[in-house]
């Protein structure tokens, strides 16, 4: 059989049964991983951001060790690359890109949006981030704010902790999490109310 021409479902079944037979990966482990993948979505990252906005100790943990911060909210990080968190401030705006491929913090943000993998986004993000954000997302970074492009080239995965928008005083975590979008945690947009 030519493996390149095999029907993909049959090929997957064959590989899975071989992995099981050879004691490399059990069916239970595959199912656990499928459950983790299904649970991963921007909503997970949004929960972390909202908690960081209301809980200074959690914010400190998140900036120190994103993986521990995610795990403390019950997000499965086993087998995932370490998670780093980049804090936006009044002086600094972070933008995440992977120019070499499509590294993305999937455990906390789920699948990357289609444009994240495009050659155009990757090239423009490093060369002209301000122009890119303004033309594609209407995100204007003021001149006084430094733009820091984080090229995710190796073993870490990066997410942005955006600035809590004004007009959200007294909001609880669930309500705050509701305004945090995927793009806010990549750095192409900023949350607002």
């Amino acid at each position: 059989m030519n493996i390149l021409e095999a029907d993909s479902d049959r090929l997957l079944a064959a590989v899975r049964s071989l992995l099981e037979k050879k004691g490399i990966v059990s069916t239970a482990e595959v199912q656990e991983r499928m459950a983790v993948t299904d649970a991963a979505s921007p909503g997970q990252g949004a929960r972390m951001v909202a908690k960081a906005w209301v809980d200074p100790a959690y914010r400190a943990l998140m900036l120190e060790d994103g993986t521990k911060a995610a795990e403390s909210l019950g997000i499965m990080m086993r087998g995932m690359p370490p998670l780093g968190v980049l804090e936006n401030t009044a002086e600094l705006h972070n933008l995440v890109v992977c120019t070499l491929c499509s590294c993305y913090p999937r455990a906390v943000l789920g699948y990357p949006p289609f444009w994240y993998k495009s050659a155009s986004f990757r090239a423009r993000a490093v060369r002209d981030p301000r122009g890119l954000l303004a033309s594609e997302w209407k995100t204007i970074v003021p001149d006084a704010v430094k733009v820091r492009v984080v090229d995710s080239t190796a073993d870490y995965r990066w997410m942005v902790l955006p600035v809590r928008p004004v007009g959200t005083d007294g909001w609880d975590e669930a309500r705050l999490a509701g305004i945090v979008r995927e793009g806010d945690m990549i750095g192409v947009t900023v949350p607002g109310v």
Binding site: V126, R127, D128, P129, R130, D143, K146, V147, R148, V149, V150, D151, S152, T153, A154, D155, Y156
Partner: peptide
Amino acid sequence: RKGAIWPEAKPDDELLVEIF
């Protein structure tokens, strides 16, 4: 520094890259 890589960039903007 962005200015060290691309002359037309805002010079003080930054790039942060993981390098072995």
